[in-house]
Each structure stands twice: as structure tokens, then as C-alpha cells.
Simulated assay, not measured.
Amino acid sequence: MTFSIASWNINSVRARIGIVEKFLREEAPDVLCLQETKVECGLFPKAMFEQLGYTHIVTNGQRMHHGVATISRVPLTEVRKYDWQANGEARHIGVTLPSGVRLDNVYIPAGGDIPDRNLNPKFGQKLDFFGRMTEWSATLVDTPTILTGDFNVAPLESDVWNHKALLDVVSHTPVEVETLARLQSASNWVDLGRHFIEAPTPLFTWWSYRAKDWEASNRGRRLDHMWVTPDLMAKAVAHRTVQPARSWERPSDHIPIVTEFAF
């Protein structure tokens, strides 16, 4: 038997509760990590999850913006909420699974439209967020950890629909790619998406709402990731994206990613 963990930027859990239920009924992951829930903790819609057996719910939310939640069929302990942006925004939840593995669910800032911290403070905040995460990552000595969520960076050329066209577009700029690489090297994280689906095969998890026909144009980016510390690489047995979710009723602009583990 395997243990499955899913991650999905849902872009408002209350507005899209119907497709979250559809996903849980069809895919039945053991744990679901949501980002951009856009709801305060006290208003999180727990009833549907509990009815489906997801009785362990940890949230870090705020009104109308950001927010993360980790929902599970198994107990979650050692809850942690880090403020890596140093401004109080709800962008992280860490828990420990019954196996003893840490699971950290993160929603990294998008960074605005201009890739220059002097002209665009949001971009600087994004880079600083990564910097604090990198410092945290370096402390994970002998700590089996899964890091997942919306990283808001597509690092490889095959992670975007057109590498040259997006070099100056926030999410694929060289400075962001280099910053993400520093985070990855801090704990020798293994990128499971590319471990199982090797480059240069195109792999996307996000398509803009602006496209009249997202599937036909296929102008996607791989913004959503699941990483593991090296001691867990052998425990990961499969990884997939759930692309049909992008066409469900009132969809998120992101799709779920799912990894199966043998622990």
C-alpha cells in the first residue's frame, strides 16, 4: 500500500468547494495541501472534508487573501506556522505525519509584474521569502521532510510554454530561477516532478484564465512543486498531475499534483 499526498492552489476553497469534493472523491489522497484558500481559519468549510473522512484539518488563513490548509485522513502533529515574508501573511503550515516525516505546505508570493525589487517591492518580498526559506532549509539535518505547494517559479525551460518569451516575466526570470536553485541546494531537495517526468518533456501545472481556450493554446507554466529531502527519495514511488481539473466547473487556474509514497 502507498500513502498519497496532493497539493493544489485552489484559488478560494469556498468558491471551489465543489471541485475540491470531486477531486477527493475521484483521487482520494491521504493528505491534501491547499494554497490560496482565501478564508479565515474560523470560516474554513470543514464539513465536506469531515464527511469524506478527512477529519484532521490544520489551517493558516486570512480574510480574502493567501492562506494554506493541510487536510488529512491521518493525525497531524507538531503544527508549525512560519512567517517567511515577515509581514503576517498566511503562507505556511508545517505538520508531522504519523510516519515521523515532516510535511511543509507553502504558498510563495507571486511577486507582482516587474522583476526588479527597486521598482516593485512585491518582487523583493518574494526573493526575501525565498531567502528565509533557504536559511530554514539548511537546518533540516537528518529530518525527513516533504516540501510542497505553489512556489510561483517555473525553473526549467521545459517548465514554461516558451522559454525565450518568458525570460523577463515574473515566475521564470533568471534571478528567480537562481534563487530557487539556492533553496534547492540548501538541503539537496529532490524535485519529484522532474524525478518522475524528466526534462525536456513539457510539464505544466498552471494556465492563465486569460486564454480563451487554455488547452488549445497550452501556454502553461510549472509553478506547483513537491520536493523531498534525499532520505525520502526512495520512498516516492509515483508522481502525477491531474490536468482534467483545469476544465472542471469554475476551475482554479492551477491543477493538483499528487505523489505516492511507500511509508
Rank of each mutant, 00 (worst) to 15 (best):
S72D: 04
V68R: 01
V31A: 07
A199G: 07
L127T: 05
V141A: 11
G88C: 08
R240W: 10
A69L: 08
A138T: 12
H56K: 10
N218R: 13
V39D: 06
G193Q: 05
F44N: 04
H66L: 11
V79W: 07
D128F: 13
S7C: 12
S99Y: 04
K235A: 15
R246T: 00
T70V: 15
P109Y: 11
V13G: 02
R222T: 00
P202V: 10
N118D: 15
A90Q: 07
H195S: 13
V242Q: 14
D128Q: 14
V242M: 10
K164H: 06
L97K: 00
V160S: 03
Q125W: 07
N118F: 13
R117E: 14
T2N: 12
H92Y: 10
P230Y: 11
H195A: 15
K212L: 14
A138P: 02
R117V: 08
V106K: 02
V228S: 10
T148N: 06
L52T: 11
G149Y: 04
A211H: 09
V106S: 09
P144W: 08
W136A: 05
T148K: 03
T179E: 08
T173D: 04
G193L: 08
V141S: 09
L156T: 05
R25D: 02
I19V: 09
P200R: 04
L140N: 04
K81I: 12
H56D: 11
F261G: 07
T201G: 05
G193T: 02
N60M: 05
P251G: 05
A138E: 11
V58I: 15
W206K: 00
I71M: 06
T229G: 03
H66Y: 14
D128I: 06
A216S: 11
E27L: 06
W214Y: 09
L147T: 01
A211E: 13
W248T: 05
W161N: 02
V68K: 01
V258C: 10
S4Y: 06
R80S: 12
V20A: 14
G61Y: 01
P256C: 15
V175T: 13
T37A: 09
G61N: 07
I17Q: 12
Y82G: 12
P121E: 04
S72T: 05
G18H: 15
A238Q: 09
R25P: 00
N60Y: 10
I255M: 06
D191S: 10
A28R: 13
A211P: 01
Y82A: 10
P256D: 14
I255Y: 03
T139A: 10
V79C: 06
V31Q: 08
A47R: 12
F49V: 00
D224R: 03
I114S: 00
D231K: 13
D150N: 14
T148R: 02
E215H: 13
I17S: 09
S12L: 12
G124V: 03
V258D: 11
E215P: 01
F3I: 06
F49W: 00
S137P: 08
V68G: 03
Q51I: 06
F3Q: 08
I255F: 01
A86S: 08
Q35D: 04
W189R: 04
E36P: 02
H56T: 14
W161R: 01
W227H: 14
F49S: 00
R194S: 08
T70F: 03
P45A: 11
H195E: 14
I255H: 05
S187A: 15
H239F: 15
E50N: 13
V258F: 09
